[in-house]
Design a protein around this nucleic acid. Structure first.
Length: 475
RNA sequence: GGCCCCAUCGUCCAGCCUGGCUAGGACAUCGCCCUUUCAAGGCGGUAACACGGGUUCAAAUCCCGUUGGGGUCACCA
C-alpha cells in the first residue's frame, strides 16, 4: 500500500523509486522476509530503479551492508557532543519503566548516563563494556514536524526521549539508519505510514544535529481491520502472496489499494482504472486521511471487474499460469489443455470473481463421472420417476444426432418439455444436475458441446438409472 | 495514562480549504426487469454529516469544547 503510493509519487514527478531493505534488526530480518518483499513488488509491478538485487549508484541497498556509514555518523555526533554513550543495562531500563508506569508517569529514559565524563565514557567503551549511543535531546523548546497532509504538528521536547541511535550489537536503530540513508541516497520525500508520526520529531532533530535539510514528510493513513485497529495479519490477510494464491489479479489489488484513501477526481467516472489512468489522476494532496477499513468484499467485486476486462486468450493464460504456479494446489501436475481452457473461458468469465474458482466452476468437465445425489435434483421439482423419464427422453432425443449443437438442440428440448408436459425450467434443471451434479453452473448446452456428445448422453442415461433405482419416498 | 492524529451511509470515497446540500458516487444489501440455473447487465429502494455550544441571513463546511476511534511512548521497524 505504501509502496504503491511511493511508486506513484516518484513516477508522477519524474523521480526515482528505490528499494532499501531496512534489516537492522538481526533477529527479525531473514532472507525470506526480504525475498517476500521483492516478490510482492514484482507481482504488483512496482518496479524500482535501484535496489539490492539490481544495484545502483547509492548502494549498497541493505542497511546491514552499510554499517560503516552509521559508525562514522555516530562518531560525528559523539564528537560534537550531540550524542552520548549509555551503559545502562536492559534490566535497569526495564525496571525503571515498570516503576514509571506504576506511578502513572510517562515512561522514558532519565538521561543519567549523560553525566558520564567523556574520558570515562571512552575508557569504559575501550574496556569492552557494552553500551548504546543516545541522542542528546535538549529538553527545552519544541520541534515542529511539517506533514504534507496534516500541516504543522508540534511536539514539546519534554515528550522526546533520548533516542537510541546505535544498539549494543553495533547495528543502528531505524531512526539513525533511516536519516543517514535518506540523506546519503538523496531521498527528497518520505511517504510512510501514520504510525511514524510520533517518531518524526526525533528524525527532524537528527537532521538538525547533522546540519542537514529535512526531507518532505507525508504520513499515509493506516489501513485498518474491521474493528478499526491497525491492520494485522491475525485479523486480515496482509501477505501479498496470499492474494496471489487466492486468484486476485494484480491490477485489481492495485486498483483497490489506490481506492483506499484516494478517489478519482469528480466526473472522472469509474472507480475501475488501470495503472496509467491512476498515474494520470494521482495527486498526493488528494489522499484522504481517515484510516480506511480494509474490506475484502469490494476487492472481490473489483477482481470480477478485472477478470471480465481480460481477453479470452489473456484470461486463459492467466488461469493456466495461476493453476501451475500460484493456486492453492501448488504445482499442479495435470493442467487442462490450453485449447480446452480457451473454449471454457467464455462460459465462466463473467461468473468468476477469483481465479481460484476455476475448479468449482469447471470440475464436471474433467471428472470421469459426476457424483449425483437426490438432493441435487430437488430444484427440478419433479418426482424421481418422472425425472428419470424426462432424462431418458432427452437422452433419446439427443442420441439421434451425432453431436451436440446448442442452436439446434435447445429449441428441440423446449419442444420436448411441452410434449412431456413439464416446465421448460424443470427440464433444463434436471439436465443440468445430471450433467454437472449441481444446480448452479455455466451455460448448459454449451457445456455439453464441450463435454462431447457421447459423454453427455451417457451422463443423462446414468442419471436416469440412478433416479429409477432410488427410493421414491426420499424426494 | 501523557503526547499526537482522525471523525460524512454497514464499508470505501466526494463535498470542507474558497459557508447556500432536497448531502453525491461505488461496494454490500433489498426489490423489479432480463433469464433454462448461477452470474453478468439494466432500473429502482433503504441507508450517513458523532454530540454540544458559538460565528453567520445561512454550517457537513469556520471556531471552541465533549465524546468516540486510532497511533505512539523498545537496544522493533
Amino acid at each position: 500500500y505504501v509502496g504503491l503510493f511511493n511508486w506513484l509519487f516518484a513516477k508522477k514527478h519524474g523521480g526515482k523509486f528505490l528499494l532499501r531493505i531496512e534489516d537492522t534488526d538481526q533477529v527479525r530480518s531473514t532472507p525470506e522476509s526480504e525475498a517476500s518483499i521483492m516478490r510482492a513488488m514484482k507481482w504488483l509491478d512496482l518496479a524500482y530503479d535501484e535496489g539490492p538485487d539490481i544495484g545502483g549508484p547509492c548502494g549498497p541497498y541493505r542497511q546491514s551492508e552499510r554499517t560503516e556509514h552509521y559508525r562514522v555518523h555516530t562518531k560525528l555526533l559523539l564528537d560534537k557532543d550531540l550524542a552520548y554513550r549509555c551503559f545502562c543495562t536492559e534490566e535497569r531500563l526495564k525496571e525503571r519503566r515498570a516503576i514509571q508506569m506504576a506511578a502513572k508517569l510517562p515512561p522514558g529514559y532519565d538521561g543519567s548516563c549523560r553525566a558520564i565524563a567523556k574520558a570515562e565514557s571512552e575508557r569504559r567503551a575501550t574496556a569492552g563494556e557494552p553500551f548504546v549511543v543516545r541522542l542528546k535531546v535538549d529538553k527545552s523548546g519544541k520541534t515542529i514536524v511539517k506533514d504534507v497532509l496534516r500541516g504543522d504538528i508540534e511536539f514539546s521536547h519534554t515528550e522526546i526521549d533520548d533516542q537510541v541511535l546505535m544498539k549494543s550489537d553495533n547495528f543502528p536503530t531505524y531512526h539513525l539508519a533511516n536519516v543517514v540513508d535518506d540523506r546519503l541516497m538523496g531521498i527528497t520525500h518520505v511517504l510512510r505510514a501514520e504510525e511514524w508520526i510520533s517518531s518524526t520529531p526525533k528524525h527532524v532533530l537528527l537532521y538538525q544535529a547533522f546540519d542537514w535539510p529535512a526531507p518532505v514528510f507525508c504520513h499515509l493513513p493506516l489501513l485498518r481491520n474491521a474493528d478499526r485497529t491497525k491492520i494485522s495479519k491475525r485479523k486480515n490477510p496482509t501477505s501479498l502472496d496470499w492474494y496471489r494464491s487466492q486468484g486476485y489479479l494484480q491490477e485489481a489489488l492495485v486498483n483497490f489499494l489506490a481506492l483506499m484513501g484516494f478517489a478519482p477526481a469528480e466526473g472522472e467516472g469509474s472507480e475501475v482504472f488501470d495503472r496509467e489512468q491512476l498515474l494520470a489522476r494521482f495527486d498526493l494532496d488528494k489522499i484522504s486521511i481517515g484510516g480506511p477499513v480494509f474490506d475484502l468484499t469490494k476487492l472481490e467485486w473489483l477482481n470480477g471487474e478485472w477478470i471480465r476486462r481480460q481477453s479470452v486468450e489473456g484470461l486463459a493464460d492467466r488461469l493456466l499460469h495461476f493453476l501451475a504456479h500460484d493456486g492453492p494446489v501448488e504445482g499442479r501436475t495435470r493442467l487442462p489443455p490450453r485449447d480446452l481452457v480457451l473454449k471454457i473461458v467464455p462460459l465462466i468469465q463473467e461468473r468468476m470473481k477469483k481465479l481460484s474458482e476455476w475448479d468449482e466452476w469447471t470440475d464436471y468437465f474433467f471428472k470421469e463421472s459426476v457424483v449425483l445425489t437426490k438432493d441435487a435434483f430437488r430444484r427440478a421439482k419433479l418426482p424421481p420417476a418422472q425425472l428419470a423419464m424426462v432424462l431418458t427422453a432427452c437422452a433419446d432425443l439427443l442420441g439421434k444426432n451425432s453431436n451436440i449443437d446448442h442452436g439446434r438442440d435447445e429449441p428441440a428440448l423446449r419442444e420436448l418439455a411441452g410434449k412431456l408436459g413439464v416446465k421448460v425450467g424443470d427440464l433444463f434443471m434436471s439436465l443440468r444436475v445430471a450433467i454437472t451434479g449441481k444446480s448452479a453452473t455455466p451455460p448448459l448446452l454449451e457445456s455439453m458441446e464441450l463435454l462431447g456428445h457421447a459423454t453427455s448422453v451417457a451422463r443423462l442415461r446414468a442419471a436416469a438409472q440412478f433416479l429409477a433405482e432410488g427410493d421414491p419416498g426420499e424426494l
